[in-house]
Design a protein around this nucleic acid. Structure first.
Length: 466
RNA sequence: GGUGCCAUCGCCAAGUGGUAAGGCCGCAGCCUGCAAAGCUGCUAUCCCCAGUUCAAAUCUGGGUGGCACCUCCA
């Protein structure tokens, strides 16, 4: 398997520290608001990565954190007169529900900041003891970036440039402008946590380092995790700081491979609160099937920036539809194990730094060939068996085509409408049988008015929502 | 200003030295009572200039045009 390392900036063979086993850590959401398409993209990319690693027979331990201590959470709790837990529980539940809808499997470990305070304070103490961190008279603890000679090695920034900012910085008790908080004191009586350094709350960067130590890092290993992932914007300062903390408080480097996914833009513009163009996953799911969103968001290479627009989404939906139409044609065929060349090629494509485009091309070619053969007369017992196995493989590795094909095409239709349509179809088929084509065409128009298409097949007449 | 990424058919998008995958849209045809679905066929020499090479979309240099990060952010 090949992986592009976004720190070394090259693609190289993936070799885990322990043969056959992979540890993966991905920065998860801060649960103070609804997840938008960017969160979805990131979760999807690393969901795909774990699937591909597992298909390559790796035993994967995948951790994705939930940040449930954060200034924005506290702010929201104050605004809504709720407890932190009420806010974080609400958004964590929503996040899980929405991830389920787009077929993102749960990580093996989902650590929360609130459950990792001990690991965090221990790490801070180590950093203080080794001279990499210092407490101020105000009760804050900062990481001393000057004490780490490898600082900025991840993002490859230039120290002088960072130093320039120092003069502009307002007066704080920081030694260097680039120093970041490991522990922030809280004195106004609002929500705080206990620590040996006083009342306060942990810094965001610390959280990930501490959780990785607690849940994934192994004694004596050169790297705390094999792969560390997250959004492209996290490289600096978040991952830079994480790496520094781990480097200075333990005897290993944070990650062997770094993977950063590209951003999701909406109609060419960055999603942001200030622009008011955030596209929330929950809203997208009202309009589109979760699997269509999954297919669309995964259809472009994970490192590229993604420009969300409805035209391309429709194009993706049509592509997914083809998988489901073949599933319909094969409905009832018993699934049996059947390794095929297609499956080998598909995995090979995905194992090359998740080359989804190539994988999709292979799928389209497989679908065409299968349809072509099924169009000709004959039983095609082997073809059906192999195709079923291929579709099952696509479901497993890519998560496409996991639904009942008939239900998939009825997305968003209520039961009353469905039975009305079914009744009209029966009438139309009677008219067709009587060769009363004027009547049958009129009935078809009536059915099409529901926003569906009709198709007559040897197996019967089916409709699909447009 | 610093660091880095990108530029391939109308649209989306693979391909990183050997003569341009795939999808959407479009056109023609097969199938169909007619449609729809499915199938078949057709449609680009890769932003510009120069260089390296037997050979470049792919490497080098320059130019032009986009974009990201440098502040919380997936």
């Amino acid at each position: 398997m090949q992986i592009y390392d976004s720190v070394q900036k090259n693609k190289r063979e993936f070799i885990p520290q322990e043969e056959g086993k992979v540890s993966l850590y991905v920065c998860g959401p801060t649960v103070y608001d609804d997840a938008h398409l960017g969160h979805a993209k990131s979760a999807l990319v690393f969901d795909l990565l774990t699937r591909v690693l597992r298909a390559n027979a790796y035993e994967v331990t995948y951790a994705r954190n939930i940040t449930d201590i954060d200034d924005k959470i506290i702010k929201k709790a104050h605004e809504q007169n709720k407890s932190i837990k009420e806010i974080t529980d609400f958004y964590t539940l929503a996040f899980h529900k929405e991830m389920d809808a787009i077929g993102v499997s749960r990580p093996d470990i989902e650590p929360k900041a609130t459950e990792s305070l001990e690991a965090m304070t221990q790490m801070i103490q180590k950093l203080i003891d080794t001279g990499h961190a210092y407490a101020t008279t105000e009760g804050d603890v900062y990481f001393d970036t000057k004490s780490d000679t490898a600082y900025l090695s991840l993002s490859k920034r230039i120290q002088e440039e960072e130093d320039k900012k120092e003069r502009i910085e307002s007066s704080t008790q920081k030694k260097n402008a680039a120093d970041f908080a490991l522990w922030k004191s809280v004195k106004d009586g609002s929500i705080t946590f206990h620590s040996p350094f006083g009342e306060g709350r942990p810094g965001w960067h610390l959280e990930c380092s501490a959780m990785i130590e607690k849940h994934l890092a192994k004694e004596g290993a050169a790297f705390a995790v094999d792969i560390h992932g997250g959004g492209a914007d996290l490289l600096f300062p978040h991952h830079e700081n994480e790496a520094a903390q781990t480097r200075c408080s333990t005897n290993h480097t944070l990650a062997n491979y770094w993977m950063h996914n590209g951003f999701v833009n909406i109609d060419g513009e960055k999603m942001s609160k200030s622009l008011g163009n955030s596209f929330f996953l929950k809203d997208a799911l009202k309009i589109y099937d979760g699997e269509v969103l999954r297919f669309y968001l995964l259809s472009t290479h994970y490192r590229s920036n993604f420009n969300f627009n409805t035209q391309d989404l429709e194009s993706s939906k049509k592509r997914l539809d083809k998988i489901y139409r073949l599933k319909k044609r094969l409905f009832g065929v018993v699934l049996m194990e059947s390794p095929t060349e297609f499956q080998t090629k598909l995995l090979s494509a995905l194992s090359d730094d998740l080359n989804v485009s190539l994988a999709l091309a292979l799928i389209d070619e497989m679908l065409s060939k299968a349809n072509e053969t099924l169009d000709t007369a004959g039983k095609h017992k082997e073809l059906k068996r192999d195709t079923m196995a291929n579709l099952a493989y696509i479901e497993k590795v890519l998560g496409f085509g996991v639904k009942n094909p008939f239900e998939y095409f009825q997305f968003g239709m209520d039961e009353t409408t469905k039975s009305e349509i079914d009744a009209l179809i029966i009438k139309r088929n009677e008219a067709k049988k009587a060769k009363d084509f004027a009547a049958s065409d009129a009935l078809r128009d009536a059915i099409l008015a529901f926003g569906v298409t009709l198709m007559d097949t040897p197996e019967g007449t089916f409709w699909e929502k447009i």
